[in-house]
Computed example of a mutant assay.
Amino acid sequence: MWKFYLFLLPIFGVNISGLYAKNDQKIILATYTYDTKDRIENLLPFADLLKSRFEGKFEIETKSFPSVDELILAMLKKEVDLVFISTAGFLSYIDQADEFEIAGTLMVDQESESTYRSIIAASKLSGINSWEDVKSKSKGLKISLVNENSTSGYLLPYLHFQQRGLTPFKDNFGLVEFTGNHKKSLDSILTGEFDLAAFGENDLQNLSGNEDLIHILWVSPAIPLGPVMVRKDMDKSISEVVEQNLLNLHQSYPAILESIKAGWIEAQNASHFEKLTKDFYIDFLK
Rank of each mutant, 00 (worst) to 15 (best):
E61C: 01
V219F: 08
H182T: 06
A30C: 07
Q251A: 10
V242L: 15
N202F: 04
L204M: 10
K3I: 11
G263Y: 01
V241R: 12
I11A: 14
D187R: 11
V242K: 03
S86P: 10
H160S: 00
I216Y: 05
K139F: 11
K22I: 12
Y158G: 01
I265L: 11
Q163W: 06
F46C: 00
K278M: 04
L204R: 14
S64M: 06
F65P: 10
N206L: 15
S92M: 09
Q244V: 12
L50G: 06
S239W: 01
S208P: 04
I214P: 01
I216V: 15
S64T: 07
L207T: 05
T191R: 12
I223L: 10
V241W: 08
A270L: 09
E113K: 12
W264D: 14
L156Y: 10
K77T: 02
I94D: 10
S67G: 06
S239R: 05
S130M: 07
Y5I: 00
F194W: 03
N149A: 11
V176Y: 07
A30N: 03
V242S: 00
I102T: 08
T36H: 11
S150K: 00
K137I: 00
K261G: 07
A270I: 04
G174I: 01
D279P: 01
E177R: 09
K236W: 03
Q205V: 04
I214M: 04
W218G: 00
V228E: 12
H272N: 04
Q244R: 15
L50E: 02
T167W: 03
L159P: 04
L257M: 05
G140D: 14
R117E: 11
L196T: 06
E59P: 00
F178C: 03
S17R: 11
F173V: 07
L207K: 13
D133H: 11
N269Q: 09
L247M: 09
Y93W: 02
D81L: 03
A103S: 12
S123C: 02
S138H: 14
Y154V: 05
G89P: 05
D48S: 10
K275H: 07
I119Y: 14
L50T: 03
F169A: 02
P157C: 05
F169I: 01
M234H: 10
D233H: 08
S239T: 08
N147K: 07
F65A: 13
W264V: 09
D171N: 13
Y158N: 03
Y34D: 01
K26V: 14
L225E: 14
L166Q: 02
G56F: 11
L159M: 13
W264Q: 05
A267Q: 05
